[in-house]
Amino acid sequence: MNVFRLSGDVSHLLAILILLMKIWKTRSCAGISGKSQILFALVYTTRYLDLFTSFISPYNTAMKVFFIASSYATIYLIYLKFKATYDRNHDTFRMEFLVLPVLVLAFVVNHDFTPLEILWTFSIYLESVAILPQLFMVSKTGQAETITSHYLFALGMYRALYIVNWVYRYYFEGFYDLIAIIAGVVQTVLYCDFFYLYVTKVLKGKQLTLPA
């Protein structure tokens, strides 16, 4: 564990808490893509099956349980509790366009052809593109609430900080995982356009709006 990895985890935790608080306090999930949240639940479920097979640390276990539980709680809030506020007309990205290619890729490019490892690989690939329905929704409506921008920024920073962590681990531990690194870079690149808008608009006190 190094400071970059820890900051990445904290950023990830913060993103989830911001999202849950936004929905809970405003009693609304307007502007939030339920499809991205379903994909994230799928990501955590398939990745953290190793909770049953290997133990890393109490920290590791606690975070995994939190990520799984919070992802299902978010889906519950969007699709059941506050479903009247869910913006389904703008959440039209087709999940199968992401899940199916990623599934094929996980079977072809992985470290080991075993069920758990293929599911882990699938979750790494899926996470890298899981935010696309949300970004698609923002581009479709041309705007995002400021709190939603903070959520997206924290979520994007998490994998960006992991990249720094991987550079650090490569130099100081000789450790690297090419699947995680390439997927992590793809994931971070997808946020670049949003990062630019966040810095130039949201941090200057304006709402995030896209040019028509």
Binding site: H12, D50, S54, K64, F67, D112, E117, W120, D177
Partner: peptide, 10 residues
């Protein structure tokens, strides 16, 4: 799974 496939990151 081999020990080096123990994924220690989240």
């Amino acid at each position: 799974r081999t020990p080096d496939l123990l994924h220690d990151e989240l």
